[in-house]
Structure formats: structure tokens, C-alpha cells
Amino acid sequence: MPVRTHATARQLRLGTELRKLRERAGLTSTEAARLLGTNQTQISNIESGRVGVSAERVRTMAHNYQCTDLDLVESLTAMIGDRKRGWWDEYRELLPSGLIDIAELEHYATALRATQAITIPGLLQTAEHARAVFRESIPRLMPHDVEHRVAHRIRRQGVIFREGAVPYKAIIHESALRMQFGGVETTKAQLTHLIDVSHRENVTIMVIPFEGTSFPISGHGVDYLYGLVPQLDTVVVDTAYGGVQIDAAAKLERYRLVLDRMEQVALPADASRDFIHRIAKTL
């Protein structure tokens, strides 16, 4: 197969998981190539996502690596297929690659969980709220760059509004609800939007009030994207330098525990909706 000029997030992840299987088996890339009847360069290209790989070859590699987790193997093969352009590809020349990657990962996730302490989670933002947030970027964005990012963010929200939308749970700190990005009217509209969206069957919004119990948090926004099997979960941490993807098993487990703890101290969904309504009435 020809070498790709750009590997997508899922293609990169497939290669990463195949590398993990090889390393767990204690094989070098040269030894893996010998078992597969190819060369070390081909193995390196597969693991870096630079070349495609067939489902049959993935199964063969998993067999060579003595992987007995059939659910994982079949989930890896499900990541293969004809390269279909997603809507996010329209933004590939307009936005940083990290924003393109998260849109692709969200599209294929089986469930989503997020937490924010300062801003509303991106999948729940109104266009005006998102626009106000992007205008505060450092360094400053040009107006047309702001609009590209707003449009991209709104299209990302299709994952929770489309037919067959995946479950989405957002844990929001009270401070994020009170931050007035864009002014009072924009904030009121944003809170009303949260209340409306919270009535959707697939959406759960939980609020941690100032008076709540302490909880573990790094200060960064966290998006937890569930894969077909737990090994294929992904965490995206929102930092000042862009989103950082995490897929190491120990770190995934840590973020699951952090989010579980935050849920434990958050208000239930109905009480959270009432809490948001009370804040909106004070504006």
C-alpha cells in the first residue's frame, strides 16, 4: 500500500495498538516482520499509521503476538475500512490537527464523558459562547479563524444530536456556569441551552456547586471518549497548547476514577437542572 502523507487519529491509534501488542509479546519489529513475511520498514510504517493494513493482516499480527483477546482484535479490525472523508476533513487546512482529531474520535466513540471547571464543555456551547471563548485565545485569533473554530465546534455537536446519538455525560463546576463569556445575555442564552439539552434522553448534565465536597481535579478540561472496548478508550486533556491525547492503560484508569469521584460529589441530573435555572434567574 502507498505511504500516507497524513494519518488520521484512528489510523494512528490502530498502529499504536498493534505496536503495544507486539511489545507485550516481547518481539522486535524485525522479529514481527519475519513472522508476517515482510520487512521491518513495513512493520514500522504500519505502527506509525503511514500505511494501511487489512483486517486479515491485523488478525494475523494479533495471532503472531499471541493475543487471545478476541474482542480487542475484532475492535481493531473495525477501525479498518475504506478511507471515507468525514465532515471534519473540510477543516484540515483551516484548523490545527488536534481539533480535527478530536472530531474524528468523537464521531466513532460509543459514549462520551466530559468535565469542565471554567468554561462550558464544547459539545454544549452555543455559538455565541464559543465565539466569546475563542476571542480570548492567546495569541489572538483573526476574525475568520474564530468563525472557522465556531463552525467546527457546532458541527462537532452532531454526535449528541444526530439520530442514534451516543450517551453524553457532562460534569460542570458552578464556576463555569457563572463565567460571563460574551456578557450577560450570552450567558443567559447559554444556561437556557444547557437546560434544554439536559432534557435529551442521551444527555446527562451534573453540576458541582461551590458548597460541594472537595474532589480531584487538574484544572484542565477533560474529555473521555469510550471505544468499542476499554483498551481503545481515549482521554483528551484541554491545555493552553491544545488537546493532549492519552491512551496509556494506567492513565485511562486514573481519569475514569477522577470522573467517577466527580460524579459522586455532583448534584443529580434533576437537581443540577434546577440549579442551573436558579443561576440563570439571578442574571
Rank of each mutant, 00 (worst) to 15 (best):
H6V: 15
A7Y: 02
A9C: 10
R10P: 02
Q11N: 09
L12K: 06
L12F: 02
R13L: 08
L14G: 04
T16H: 13
T16C: 07
T16V: 07
T16G: 12
L18H: 13
L18M: 14
R19V: 05
R19G: 11
K20W: 09
L21H: 10
L21F: 11
L21R: 13
R22N: 12
R22C: 12
E23S: 13
R24W: 06
A25T: 09
G26R: 11
L27C: 07
L27E: 09
L27G: 11
T28G: 09
T28N: 06
S29H: 05
S29P: 05
S29E: 10
T30I: 13
T30N: 11
E31S: 14
A32S: 13
A32C: 14
A32L: 15
A33P: 02
R34I: 09
R34C: 05
R34Q: 15
R34Y: 13
R34M: 09
L36C: 15
L36S: 15
L36K: 13
G37Q: 11
T38K: 14
T38L: 13
N39H: 09
N39R: 02
Q40T: 14
Q40S: 15
T41P: 04
T41D: 11
S44T: 08
S44L: 07
S44K: 08
I46N: 05
E47L: 13
S48Q: 12
G49Q: 08
G49P: 06
G49V: 10
R50E: 03
R50W: 05
V51M: 15
S54V: 01
S54C: 04
S54A: 05
E56D: 10
V58A: 11
V58C: 10
R59C: 02
R59H: 01
R59G: 03
M61P: 01
M61R: 12
M61T: 09
A62R: 14
H63A: 08
N64S: 11
Y65E: 11
Q66M: 05
Q66R: 07
C67H: 06
C67D: 06
T68G: 11
D69A: 07
L70P: 02
D71T: 10
L72F: 13
V73I: 14
V73W: 08
S75L: 02
L76P: 05
L76W: 05
T77W: 02
A78H: 09
M79C: 00
G81E: 06
D82A: 09
R83K: 13
R83C: 02
K84T: 04
K84C: 03
R85A: 07
G86Q: 04
W87M: 03
W88G: 01
W88H: 03
W88Y: 01
D89V: 07
D89Q: 08
E90Q: 05
E90F: 06
E90L: 08
R92L: 02
E93C: 04
E93D: 07
L94R: 00
L94M: 00
P96H: 00
P96G: 00
P96C: 00
S97T: 03
S97A: 05
G98N: 02
G98W: 03
